[in-house]
Design a protein around this nucleic acid. Sequence first.
DNA 1: GACGAATTAGACAAGAGTGTCTAAATTTAT
DNA 2: ATAAATTTAGACACTCTTGTCTAATTCGTC
Lengths: 229, 229
Amino acid sequence: MKLHVSPDTFPPRGHEAKRISIVDAAAGVFCREGYAGANIDLIAVEAGVSRQTVYNHHGDKEKLFVAVVRDLTERCNTGIFATIATFPDQPKDLEADLIGFAVRLNQNCICNRDGKFLRKLIQTEGERYPELFAEWLEQGPGRTWPAIAARFARLAYGGYLAIEDPDVAARQFLGLVNAELQTTFMLGGTPREDEVLQSATNGVRTFLRAFGKRRSVASVEKQAALASA
Amino acid sequence: MKLHVSPDTFPPRGHEAKRISIVDAAAGVFCREGYAGANIDLIAVEAGVSRQTVYNHHGDKEKLFVAVVRDLTERCNTGIFATIATFPDQPKDLEADLIGFAVRLNQNCICNRDGKFLRKLIQTEGERYPELFAEWLEQGPGRTWPAIAARFARLAYGGYLAIEDPDVAARQFLGLVNAELQTTFMLGGTPREDEVLQSATNGVRTFLRAFGKRRSVASVEKQAALASA
DNA sequence: GACGAATTAGACAAGAGTGTCTAAATTTAT
DNA sequence: ATAAATTTAGACACTCTTGTCTAATTCGTC
């Protein structure tokens, strides 16, 4: 019935397709209901499989949960690194380019389904599985944050920015760019596109007011004086 | 046996004391285990009362949960407004004063027991009780953020800062000052005192680089030009 | 079309948690 | 000291969930 077009590749068929739909459904249910409240029957229904199939694939509830977190971390990481690759190394218009980067990062990695689910699971169950989330910390922020910091360092080295500590600058960049989305994130919502753009725009403007290169020499000296005082 | 020192006041005795210890214990258990995973027997044990007393005071699990959120919101609000009252309106040393304010805000309101619990409950159960958390949004951020923004507006009016939109500035201030604490918050941890100070120091420095008054007129004009472009 | 692997529905035991009830004990106020 | 209110321990019915098992069915492959 089905042509033998792409053996062993996408879109996954049969067995593998079920594994994925189970993990996807489980991610949604774990997020909505929390680990304790998540009902395996419900996961099975949402995945469109029988309960027994869930157990066949993943053993038990806890193993399923671990599989979900691992899957989400991996998929999010892929997205984040793909987006970091679009960081403006030699910007034509620094402000516009950084805003674009910030918006891409939010839309593709943080506000999408996987990002939202992963964030929620970490917030909700992080304390219950210290080893698992230590692994996430190492694989996730532990790899992505330095990668972003390195891009800012390069921008500074290229003379586009006046930053002292690229790691601090990277964290502050993310803090600024998401400053207006905090409440939405807290409540588990997804910000609208225009909210993301607005927050990114305001954040980048402030970031450049602080670190942009057109600042007077005097103010840089003042900064140094303050630091040494 | 007990002297009739302070009728009807603190420290609460008997009935009222039990109500408080139940809510306190419930807050801890709801946070650790999530709503579905929270066990009323465990809450009773941690509160040092019998299970029946929990039901006598609060009816059922859901009503108890609502009482917990309301209590935490109220207590946190009290702390935040008390801290906002210490905002430096006429700073001697703007940088030091703002750092002090940021540290106080974190230590007294965001990183303390109540703040941590409330944050976690909102993140965890926010979507399940829309009306309850709409109420929190209104009573919490809806009142505190404008109050902080007003203080920044006053600082700008007094010539200490060059900000255009006080609401944006307030959100960015909080974003910057907490930039280095995000991961800890995510995992439900409590940052160490020196981490709070470090993050606040770095955040305030950047904030003042962006909004401090000693910036050249030229850069302000450039900012205006960019905004109109 | 036929074979083996995977999936399904359903029943099932075991365990855990909620919320109620009762009778005894304790606290509090008078 | 006494009466009223509160608290307690324990038992209880009820529901829900997990994880296993079995027999029938469907699917993928040759």
